[in-house]
Design a protein around this nucleic acid. Structure first.
Lengths: 194, 194
DNA sequence: CTAGTTTGCCTAAATGCTTTAGGCAAATGC
DNA sequence: GCATTTGCCTAAAGCATTTAGGCAAACTAG
């Protein structure tokens, strides 16, 4: 029978597109097989199982994100860098909602450690160097930014901000302003307002 | 045959516990039936389908969260209220990871509008009144806080902060400090650093 | 260019979750 | 007590996952 030319690479790319169309949760080995007009079992030579497929899509998305971010941040510093980095994240989530959801998928620690997620974290730290935060505050700030970007993309993707004003894009801009302000005025450990 | 005494209520509660044990994604009508030692089809008199079950668990979790939050915030204002509110959210996510994941589930707009999620949003606005932000900044701030809490709980639940120092709890405290500071110094729309 | 080997996609089959249709027995109400 | 409602059942179909084993197409020599 005619060979279609499957490969792990092609499956992952097609899986990423499928995720963008139908949602990451709905990505299924069966649907992917259908799109290649191939029997389901044939995919199992290229991916271990459904979980493996999804993990690979996640890693693929993280790599795309890291590449785009590296480009965007290059030659920028301070708020400029922060904004560029954050916008890559949000723009990617708009253009590729399924991949963005994949990038937020839970990975087991070793997989995560070997992923491009690490590069993203390092870029965030590089950006924060422009704000001159001592450790451990830098780590706290990394976690704040990660949580906020992650959460915003997630809520926006779920339609949380869609039917209300002001426009979500405006909130995004103002939130980035606010985070920049915050980083430039990072407070010392709590002392009740005196 | 002996009747077990199923009801939508009991199914939802058991579903919530199941979610905490095995993860919200892994909640399945079949597993729930097994736990009640009942045939799968029997559950379909009480919930419409699998999606319906999950939605009900989400609504249940949102209600628990809103009730706990209302208690925690009562009689507090300013940073005190903010901290109490945020801690309810995080503590709940620790005690009930599956329900917390359920609470983050995407709901269709009408369902969401009828959910206790609305009460949570209103509480957040009430807390923000203590910071005296004019609209639309209050809305931006609501979105920032929502994103950050949501994102932090999500990342922490996924183990994102578990094998690194400083302790996640410390970051949480410092992030709340930071957000309080930010709300008290909310920046006007961008004017490049002069 | 043919023979051997690898590899890609296939059929077949088991398992498990979802969902609907229709039945019988237990609980409820008069 | 009897009728009705209701709760849980059996049965069955549909679809996703996954493994085992087979055949033919595509590489690799000699």
């Amino acid at each position: 029978m005619a060979r279609v030319g499957l490969s792990t690479e092609r499956l992952v790319r097609a899986g990423a597109e499928l995720a963008d169309e139908v949602g990451f949760e709905q990505v299924t080995v069966s649907e992917l097989a259908r799109r290649f007009d191939v029997k389901v079992a044939s995919l199992y030579s290229h991916v271990k199982n459904s979980q493996d497929l999804k993990t690979r899509i996640a890693l693929f998305a993280l790599q795309e994100l890291a590449d785009l971010s590296a480009d965007a941040v290059a030659g920028r510093a301070g708020k400029d860098a922060l904004t560029a980095f954050a916008n890559v994240y949000r723009d990617y989530a708009h253009a590729h909602p399924g991949r963005a959801a994949a990038a937020r998928m839970r990975l087991d620690p070793e997989t995560a450690a070997a992923s491009a997620g690490l590069r993203l974290a390092q870029m965030m730290r590089a950006i924060l160097r422009g704000y001159d935060l001592p450790e451990p505050d830098q780590t706290h700030a990394v976690r704040l930014l990660g949580s906020t970007f992650h959460g915003y993309a997630s809520l926006e993707g779920a339609g949380g901000f869609s039917h209300s004003s002001p426009d979500s894009g405006e909130s995004w801009t103002r939130i980035l302003d606010a985070l920049d302000t915050l980083l430039r005025n990072w407070p010392a450990p709590d002392r009740p307002t005196g």
